[in-house]
Amino acid sequence: MTIQVKLFGQLRTKTGQETIAIESGSEGSPKLGDVLADIAQNYSEAKNLLFKPDGTIAGGLLISIDDEAAVPDPDLALKAGSTVTLLTAISGG
């Protein structure tokens, strides 16, 4: 099962990717926390935009699943075909 992840803001700059496809194993639904951990593992510069030092999900990250903001719960089960959009807080100036 594949989960499409769209990246915006600094996450795009730090990973050099606009979209990442994450393949999960055949056992059960992939969890939101696993998807974020997969990105953090493959793109170490993006890790602190995804997780706080204590391992919880970063507060400057907005997670949307199929265009609806989601509670940042690492145990949230993702459905097949879901698109996860990760936005970081941005500003003016």
Binding site: G9, R12, G59, G60, A69, A89, I90, S91
Partner: peptide, 28 residues
């Protein structure tokens, strides 16, 4: 808000919508 070639915009109304801390509890 803007960054690179992206922008984000929303209108927040007390009591009716989220506030900025609801959207982004902490800065990135």
């Amino acid at each position: 808000a803007m960054y690179d070639m992206e922008y984000q915009i929303t209108t927040m109304i007390p009591g009716e919508t989220p506030c900025l801390r609801c959207l982004y509890p902490e800065d990135p």
